[in-house]
């Protein structure tokens, strides 16, 4: 039971994070586009990336709340957070200058803190995937024992 609670906490954290991040970006869309336009990696696609990222975040937030899509969503969270982290790592180490386009409260984080924040969420996603498998196994075991009970009852 404890494992299932932890998974719920992880899912909840991701949902809050993504909804917060997405609404923040959409609320200041113009600014977000302008900031992305300065990033050497994505300046040519700034307008499309500026709506793709928040859309993806909202889709993931919704998918996390649907039981059947949970596992796929967790893989999605992992991929998205890893991509953000690699992007930040690249910008810090290889870009001739460092632009910033993180929304709201994340804007006040330094790059190292930001990196740490992202890595924690990557770990959470991996943990969530593991917990999901365990939960599935538990459910299967439970189902198996119920089936057996039913069988023995029918005999």
């Amino acid at each position: 039971m404890k494992a299932i609670n932890l998974l719920d906490i992880i899912v909840f954290s991701f949902v809050i994070l993504f909804i917060y991040a997405a609404t923040n970006k959409l609320a200041t869309y113009d600014l977000f586009v302008a900031q992305l336009g300065k990033s050497p990696l994505i300046m040519n696609y700034a307008p499309s990336i500026a709506w793709m990222i928040p859309t993806l975040e909202l889709i993931l937030a919704i998918a996390l709340l649907i039981r059947k899509l949970l596992l796929a969503a967790l893989f999605g969270c992992f991929t998205l957070m890893l991509t953000f982290t690699l992007y930040i790592g690249f910008i810090i180490n290889f870009s001739p200058y460092v632009p910033c386009s993180c929304g709201g409260i994340l804007n006040s984080l330094g790059w190292t803190e930001h990196m740490l924040f992202n890595i924690i969420f990557i770990v959470l996603a991996v943990l969530g995937i593991g917990l999901h498998a365990k939960q599935a196994a538990l459910v299967a075991a439970e189902k198996f024992s119920i089936d057996q009970q039913n069988e023995s009852a029918s005999i």
Binding site: F75, L82, T83, F90, G130, L131, A133, K134
Partner: peptide, 27 residues
């Protein structure tokens, strides 16, 4: 405490590759 099926590990690896691929392509 945790169970990672072979398929989960494989998917995680694919996701990582996808991530790296996106950044490399952008670069």
């Amino acid at each position: 405490a945790l169970q990672f099926k072979r398929s989960s590990r494989l998917t995680l690896a694919c996701c990582t590759l996808l991530s790296v691929g996106i950044i490399v392509t952008l670069y």
